[in-house]
């Protein structure tokens, strides 16, 4: 056996890779892929395609620019293709919710079934926890990449050719979305370590976000000086992110990365202490 650290990396990678195996080699994964493809077919066919056609009209562009400018999102329409603008605006709010469902079962079912007992005899709880988390990120990276590729194909079909800036923009959106989703995936890793079913993990995550927002809202109401704490909630940076453009968007990655680290530390602690 290698030393503890190389062993941790090796086993973490094995767990991460196994999540891809779960997606591509099991009927459950095939159903998830089929559902993903169907949803994206309808999203591309109707909202994205229709909206991008509408956005070609100068009057509509002018009106939307004015409206979005009022809420600080004037840059939303400045992506190199209207399809990417619509994709970005839609996914940045829709994907975190989707991830709370898709990443809910990182360890909970394995714990209630007893499968973790087989695994912890051969690998550390850390490698299971972080391996599953990274596996979820790999799956998300792959699926976001595929949906972006489909969006680019749709745009290319409409305009006849794809500007080079579009590839750069797609890469930026891909990176930003992954960063946006990280704290939500980490939150689900924590919730999954706490409870014994994915349904409970989803409920716990939603209730936790609601409860924290409620308590903070109450505190801010009574102590307005605490308003800044609201900016630390998961997803709080999204309106600012939509207002940014190009590489400037990555200026907002600090908060989600910090949230991810904090949630992962909490999740690791729970995973270490929890009885199997």
């Amino acid at each position: 056996m290698p030393g503890p650290l190389p062993l941790l990396f090796r086993q973490t990678w094995l767990y991460s890779r196994f999540e891809l195996h779960r997606l591509f080699m099991t009927p459950r994964g095939w159903f998830a892929l089929a559902a993903f493809t169907t949803i994206w077919y309808f999203l591309l066919r109707y909202p994205i395609y229709q909206a991008s056609v509408q956005l070609q009209e100068p009057e509509i562009q002018q009106m939307l620019s004015g409206m979005l400018g009022m809420v600080g999102m004037y840059n939303l329409l400045n992506w190199s293709l209207p399809e990417l603008s619509v994709y970005w605006a839609m996914t940045v709010f829709f994907m975190p919710l989707a991830v709370m469902f898709s990443a809910a079962d990182q360890t909970c079912t394995d714990r209630s079934r007893g499968t973790l007992r087989f695994l912890t005899l051969r690998s550390s709880r850390d490698s299971i926890f972080f391996g599953r988390f990274i596996g979820q990120l790999l799956v998300q990276a792959l699926l976001i990449g595929l949906s972006l590729l489909a969006t680019l194909v749709l745009a290319a079909w409409r305009v006849g050719e794809l500007p080079a800036a579009a590839l750069n923009a797609a890469l930026l959106i891909w990176l930003n979305l992954l960063i946006v989703l990280m704290p939500f995936t980490a939150l689900m890793a924590l919730c999954s370590a706490l409870v014994r079913s994915s349904r409970l993990a989803i409920s716990l995550a939603i209730v936790s976000i609601g409860a924290v927002a409620g308590v903070l809202g109450y505190l801010v109401w009574h102590f307005p000086d605490l308003r800044a704490v609201l900016e630390y909630l998961p997803g709080a940076q999204l309106p600012m992110l939509l207002g940014a453009q190009g590489w400037d968007t990555l200026k907002h990655c600090g908060l989600p990365l910090l949230q991810t680290v904090v949630l992962l530390i909490a999740g690791r602690f729970v995973m270490q202490e929890k009885a199997l």
């Binding site: 056996m1 503890p4 062993l7 941790l8 007893g114 007992r117 912890t120 005899l121 550390s124």
Partner: peptide, 21 residues
């Protein structure tokens, strides 16, 4: 649970099941 025991100690835990997938 120490990493030094991985592969050296094994067990048949009561009521533990494999992944059905």
């Amino acid at each position: 649970g120490s990493s030094a025991l991985f592969g050296r100690v094994s067990a048949l835990p009561q009521d533990a099941l494999l992944d059905p997938n």
